[in-house]
Amino acid sequence: MPTVSVIIPTYNRAEVLPRAIDSALDQTLSDVEVIVIDDASTDDTETVVTSYDEPRVTYLAHETNRGGSAARNTGIEVATGDYIALLDSDDEWAPTKLERQVETLEQRSSEWVAAYCGTTLIDDEGANPVWERIKSFVGLHSAKEGREGGEELVKEVLMENLHTSAGSTLIVDSDVVDQIGGFDESFDRYQDTEFLIRVLKQGKLAYIDEPLLRRYPSGGPSADSVRQANTHYLRTFAEDVVELETRGYDVTGIHQYALASLYLREGRFNRGLAYLRAGQTPGLRQLPGLLYTVCTGIQTRLTD
């Protein structure tokens, strides 16, 4: 049995997929199995994966596209490792990522069932360098990381105060993954976050304060699809949301503000302003980011 089972769901990413697979195979913790789940790709994904002359790599394929949650569950079903590690097919790990996480968890008590790590966001090569410089100052790329703990972190996740990039940073005790039943296949967005919240209700989450994940830009979902997924997400954790809002935390307002930003970025200003009025009032630190999204939306409208 390997120490870690790496689960890589993929769909039509044959060009960048080797980057993720290679980074999993090149770990200093070599006792791993890498399970790639092809969610009915129409490109050369199968050829790319089966070209690896490596017994640690397993290729599984869906006959029809079932979504990321189902793909991860397919991998989890055949995984044999002590830990399950998640990796998106367009991301890349530093060589010491798994070793540092396993070492951290095994040095702590059994309460600590999962770990995540710091990230480095790689800017789009085609991006405007002036805007990238501005974003570095206003903090649009600064993920909020570094928190450790258990169920008390559910509040931080729902309040958007804790961003873990769980789909590529998270490693979880396989027994816990079994206990919570893997991923909820009704989620096509927020799937990693929903999974993380259920993990936090089982035990504690550790943090390795090193940038052990390189995340690459891959576009993003439309505001409409995020809105639908957001509704499902907040309804799923309605009891937690009500409890937090009873204590004065404006969970709904924070999510409405996030939707406002997405609509403004798409240049859909009427919808964006409606969510902005309904959402949480932005603070001074949020104003530069809000201005940036408006400018992006104006640029989008001009180029349409």
Rank of each mutant, 00 (worst) to 15 (best):
Pro2Arg: 11
Ser5Cys: 00
Val6Met: 04
Ala14His: 11
Ala20Asp: 07
Ile21Asp: 00
Asp22Phe: 05
Val32Ser: 08
Val34Arg: 08
Ile35His: 09
Ile37Cys: 10
Asp38Met: 06
Ala40Leu: 08
Ala40Ser: 14
Asp43Trp: 05
Glu46Arg: 15
Ser51Pro: 09
Val57Asn: 03
Leu60Gly: 03
Leu60Phe: 05
His62Glu: 13
Asn65His: 15
Asn65Cys: 12
Gly68Tyr: 04
Ala71Lys: 02
Arg72Met: 03
Arg72Trp: 08
Thr74Ala: 12
Glu77Ser: 13
Ala79Glu: 06
Leu86Gly: 02
Leu86Gln: 00
Leu86Trp: 04
Asp88Ile: 00
Ala94Glu: 13
Pro95Cys: 09
Leu98Gly: 04
Gln101Thr: 07
Thr104Glu: 15
Arg108Ala: 10
Glu111Gln: 15
Trp112Tyr: 03
Val113His: 01
Ala115Thr: 02
Tyr116Trp: 06
Tyr116Leu: 03
Thr119Val: 13
Ile122Gln: 15
Asp123Arg: 12
Ala127Asn: 10
Ser136Ala: 15
Gly139Phe: 07
Leu140Ile: 15
Ser142Trp: 08
Ser142His: 12
Ala143Trp: 14
Ala143Asp: 12
Ala143Gly: 09
Glu148Asn: 06
Glu151Ile: 12
Val157Ile: 14
Leu158Pro: 07
Leu158His: 10
Glu160Asn: 13
His163Asn: 07
Ile171Lys: 14
Val172Pro: 03
Asp175Glu: 11
Asp175Gln: 15
Asp178Cys: 01
Ile180Cys: 00
Gly182Arg: 12
Thr193Cys: 00
Phe195Cys: 01
Ile197Ser: 08
Arg198Pro: 00
Lys201Thr: 00
Leu205Met: 03
Ile208Arg: 11
Leu213Lys: 08
Arg214Val: 01
Pro217His: 09
Ser218His: 15
Pro221Gly: 05
Pro221Phe: 12
Pro221Cys: 07
Ser222Val: 02
Ala223Pro: 05
Ser225Asp: 12
Tyr233Leu: 03
Ala238Arg: 15
Gly248Ile: 12
Tyr249Lys: 15
Tyr249Met: 14
Asp250Thr: 07
Ile254Val: 14
Tyr257Gln: 06
Tyr257Lys: 02
Ala260Pro: 05
Ser261Met: 15
Ser261Trp: 10
Leu262Glu: 00
Glu266Cys: 02
Gly267Cys: 10
Gly267Ala: 08
Arg277Pro: 00
Gln280Glu: 14
Arg285Gly: 07
Gln286Leu: 13
Pro288Gln: 14
Leu291Met: 12
Val294Arg: 09
Cys295Thr: 06
Thr300Trp: 06
